[in-house]
Computed example of a mutant assay.
Amino acid sequence: MTDANDNHARRWHVRGRVQGVFFRASTRDQARRRGLTGHARNQPDGSVEVLAVGPRVALDELEEWLAEGPGGARVDAVEADEIALPDPPPAGFTTG
């Protein structure tokens, strides 16, 4: 049986006006507040890929935030995928 505090991993692709509006830095701050590790990276197609590892409730909270993003961003779509835990798990939350 799994516990709500067990670590899970989720990857999102966030589309819209999400590059050049502090989306990655804001995502990093939101993830760190929730104790998540992972990354937020710009993609060549103009989207941002976010990968996060942590408790399911924290991932759900981050997903809600990603749907809105920071001021100045316009989020058109958020695609989410549950993924296997990375081995090794990420240390900290980075932008790139």
Rank of each mutant, 00 (worst) to 15 (best):
R33C: 01
H39E: 10
V48P: 08
V53Y: 04
V57C: 13
A31Y: 06
R56P: 07
L51G: 01
P44Y: 02
N42P: 11
P55F: 07
P44T: 03
R32P: 05
V50P: 03
R56F: 00
A52H: 10
V53N: 00
L62Q: 15
R56T: 05
V57L: 15
Q43S: 06
V48S: 08
L36G: 04
H39M: 12
D29L: 06
R33G: 02
D29P: 08
G38K: 02
L51N: 03
P55A: 14
P44S: 06
D45E: 07
V53I: 02
L36C: 00
A40S: 12
R41K: 13
L59Y: 13
E61A: 13
S47T: 15
A31T: 05
A40N: 08
V50G: 04
L62M: 15
G46Y: 01
A40E: 06
E63H: 15
S47G: 12
R32T: 12
D60F: 12
V48M: 08
A58F: 12
A58K: 03
L51P: 08
S47A: 15
L51H: 01
D45V: 02
N42E: 10
A52K: 04
Q43W: 11
V53S: 07
Q30H: 02
E49P: 02
V50Y: 03
R33T: 06
N42S: 05
Q43K: 04
N42L: 03
D60I: 07
N42Q: 05
E63M: 03
A31N: 05
V50A: 12
H39N: 07
A58Y: 04
R34V: 06
V50M: 10
D45T: 13
R32W: 01
Q43N: 12
A40H: 13
E49W: 03
T37N: 07
L59I: 12
N42R: 09
H39S: 02
R33I: 01
P44I: 07
V57P: 10
D45Q: 12
L59A: 14
G54H: 00
E61D: 14
L51V: 09
V57Y: 15
G46E: 09
V50F: 07
L36V: 06
L36W: 00
L62S: 14
D29F: 10
Q30C: 02
R56D: 10
G35A: 11
Q43A: 11
L51D: 09
S47I: 13
A31K: 11
E63K: 13
E64I: 15
E63C: 13
L62E: 15
A52P: 02
H39V: 02
R41I: 10
G35K: 01
D29N: 06
E49G: 01
V48N: 09
E64Q: 15
A31D: 00
G38I: 09
S47M: 11
G38S: 11
P55T: 05
G54A: 10
Q43G: 00
S47L: 14
N42I: 09
N42V: 00
L51E: 02
R41P: 06
Q43Y: 00
A40T: 08
L59E: 03
L36A: 05
D45H: 10
